[in-house]
Amino acid sequence: MAGNTPPKVAASATTRAPLPSGIALLGVRGSDRDPRALVRLPDGRVVAVGVGSQLGRQKIIAIDQDRIALSKGGSAEWIELP
């Protein structure tokens, strides 16, 4: 029955929302020992990153189930799933 979703059901099950500007967290996967995150960069590229990865001048310092922490200049910023 794949592909036969009634239009009303598809419309009510789909939410359109713009992604935030800047770095956006798209998803998190992996294990507790090796968490990975999928992020969209300000230029639109999508990259997989891990703890220690550099994103411009910022560094990934933590990855949780639904957010990542970026460090820049001694302060940290959490980015959550939209």
Rank of each mutant, 00 (worst) to 15 (best):
M1F: 10
A2D: 13
A2R: 08
N4G: 12
N4W: 11
P7D: 14
K8C: 00
V9T: 10
V9Q: 08
V9S: 00
A10W: 11
A11V: 06
A11H: 06
S12V: 05
S12H: 03
R16A: 07
A17Q: 15
P18H: 01
P18C: 04
L19G: 02
P20N: 02
P20M: 04
S21L: 10
I23F: 13
A24K: 11
L25C: 06
L25M: 12
L25S: 10
L25G: 08
L26S: 04
G27T: 05
V28Q: 03
V28G: 01
V28M: 04
G30N: 03
G30E: 10
G30L: 07
S31F: 07
D32E: 06
R33W: 06
R33Q: 11
D34S: 11
P35E: 01
P35L: 04
R36Q: 09
A37M: 11
D43Y: 04
D43W: 10
G44P: 04
R45M: 07
V46I: 12
V46H: 04
V46A: 00
V46N: 00
V46D: 00
A48Y: 04
V49G: 01
G50V: 12
G50Q: 15
G50Y: 06
G50F: 07
G52P: 01
S53E: 10
S53Y: 09
Q54H: 07
Q54A: 06
L55S: 03
G56F: 15
R57F: 15
Q58G: 04
Q58D: 13
K59R: 11
K59S: 04
K59W: 09
K59H: 01
I60Q: 01
A62P: 00
I63W: 02
I63M: 08
I63A: 05
D64E: 14
D64R: 15
D66S: 11
D66P: 02
D66H: 14
D66E: 11
R67D: 04
R67K: 14
I68Y: 11
I68P: 05
I68S: 02
A69G: 07
L70P: 05
L70V: 05
K72F: 14
G73V: 06
G73A: 07
G74H: 09
G74T: 13
S75A: 09
E77W: 02
I79F: 14
I79D: 05
P82L: 14
